[in-house]
Write a protein that binds this DNA or RNA. Structure first.
Length: 424
RNA sequence: GGGGGGAUUCCAGAGCGGUCAAAUGGGGCAGACUGUAAAUCUGUUGGCUAAGCCUUCGGAGGUUCGAAUCCUUCUCCCCCCA
């Protein structure tokens, strides 16, 4: 199966320039995807374009992940309704390093024939003077052309700084630079990058007279219309400091049936036949949630490793399975703590519960698990509060007898929301 | 510049002197069902020392026993005419 066919059946092809398929068939090609270092970790949204590069490499071509050390200093207006604040150079350099480390996990950097190579546009932009840039590059692209791009057009009403306006030209130059220095003829990215990519193609055409190509993938959506990759707590990051492996695993496990079929095609490398069989099985026995489990396993192992995956599964079993108070009481402290990783923690002084206190005070004043006493009363009336896995009502008093390992109390609001209260 | 309409609790949007912590819908949260899914149904959705009290209906004043509702003024938004 060709690279393009692969993308097609996986639902990863949104737009493609004419002739791309022919080029890939006849030549050994390099392609790049740009990632701006706006944070010191990638999130799962980035994973889509990384998977494009991965498939590209599997198809025998050479992937060039580009870290936007320069473009990150400018800010891409694509898909943004507002001007953004600039990151300091120090932060950017730090972010670049972190992202570099993460990228290494996903692509093959050792292959003799087509090893991946990370490039950073800061390397070629940092010594390119403003005047030189205007004379060499700016002269080739007209304002009219740049303004006609959606990313710019949509911002003309609300305002757009010259800085962000310039972004597409810098990205276009990246493409030209890679074309000339790395023989890179293809740029890939999310569909929101189409405008920027075609500006690059135009620049290459005007500079060299040659053709360059683009492939974009659709924006990943959720069936319920929400933003992909976001939870109440924010983005799902690849870095375990920001999203614990447990939460990462849970995110995939919680995908709805509608979404999971699309996601497993995008985020795993599993072959078509295997995925189609899985989907069939899933339809037969949806309650087993096989697809979600396979997807969560595959991607958690690739991002965090097998050991972290096993811990996440184990934790899920205890928290969502038929876990009882007795089970919790038996857990060693370190297991309990790793289980509670990524769960909001609240501290309380041990002395405050030496005498019994009402559960309402415990939930609000003492720990801040719930924001007001009204809400606490309501929750208790609804039967949504559990202490150490046991449902409680308003008549409950909390005391040192409730402490697990004489230090912890596990509070649940509803089925899924956990809080760990630590008595000190 | 002239004329008109509007600002209500997370959002949309009723209310137009007491029965208003404010209809209804959406969203949120929870319960039931289930599969940690979806759909559906139910409850709930300002705070507190809770059959009571306090703070809320763009801001500031005023009328009144009593104001989200009436008056004055300010701020902001929308529409129409020039």
């Amino acid at each position: 199966m060709s690279f393009i066919e692969e993308l097609k059946w996986r639902g990863m092809l949104h737009d493609i320039t004419p002739g791309t398929e022919k080029l890939l068939k006849e030549d050994f090609v390099s392609a790049y995807v740009g990632i701006d270092p706006t944070a010191d970790s990638l999130h799962i949204g980035h994973l889509v374009s990384i998977m494009m590069l991965k498939h590209f490499q599997v198809a025998g071509h050479k992937p060039l992940p580009l870290i936007g050390g320069a473009t990150g200093m400018i800010g891409d207006p694509s898909g943004k309704s507002q001007e953004r604040t600039l990151l300091s150079e120090e932060v950017l350099r730090h972010n670049e390093k972190a992202i570099h480390k993460q990228l290494i996990k996903f692509l093959d950097f050792d292959s003799v024939k087509n090893k991946a190579e990370i490039v950073n546009n800061y390397d070629w932009m940092k010594d390119f003077s403003f005047l030189q840039f205007l004379r060499e590059i700016g002269k080739k692209i007209s304002i009219n052309y740049m303004i006609s791009k959606d990313s710019v057009k949509s911002r003309l009403e609300t305002g757009l700084s010259f800085t962000e306006f310039s972004y597409q030209l810098i990205q276009a130059y990246d493409f030209l630079h890679l074309y000339q220095n790395k023989n890179c003829k293809l740029q890939m990215g999310g569909s929101d990058q189409w405008g920027n990519i075609t500006t690059g193609i135009e620049l290459i055409r005007r500079t060299t007279g040659n053709e360059a190509y683009a492939v974009t993938c659709p924006l990943i959506t959720k069936a319920d219309g929400g933003k992909f990759g976001k939870t109440e707590q924010g983005n799902i990051w690849l870095d375990s400091r920001y999203t614990s492996p447990y939460n990462f695993y849970q995110f995939w496990l919680n995908c709805s049936d509608k979404d999971v079929e699309r996601y497993i095609k995008i985020f795993t490398l599993m072959p078509r036949e295997e995925i189609e069989n899985l989907i069939k099985e899933h339809c037969k026995e949806p309650h087993l949630r096989k697809l979600q489990k396979v997807l969560a396993k595959d991607i958690t192992i690739r991002v965090h490793g097998e050991e972290e995956y096993n811990l996440a599964v184990e934790a899920s079993g205890i928290l969502f399975g038929k876990g009882t108070t007795e089970m919790l009481l038996k857990l060693p402290e370190d297991v309990l703590l790793s289980l509670m990783e990524g769960v909001p923690k609240h501290t309380i002084s041990k002395s405050s519960i030496e005498n019994k206190i009402s559960i309402i005070d415990f939930l609000t004043e003492e720990t801040g698990v719930l924001p007001s006493k009204s809400e606490a009363r309501r929750a208790l009336k609804e039967g949504s509060i559990s202490i150490n896995k046991k449902k409680e009502n308003e008549s409950k008093y909390v005391s040192v007898d409730d402490l697990i390992n004489s230090r912890y109390i596990i509070v649940q609001r509803g089925k899924k929301k956990y809080f760990l209260v630590i008595a000190e």
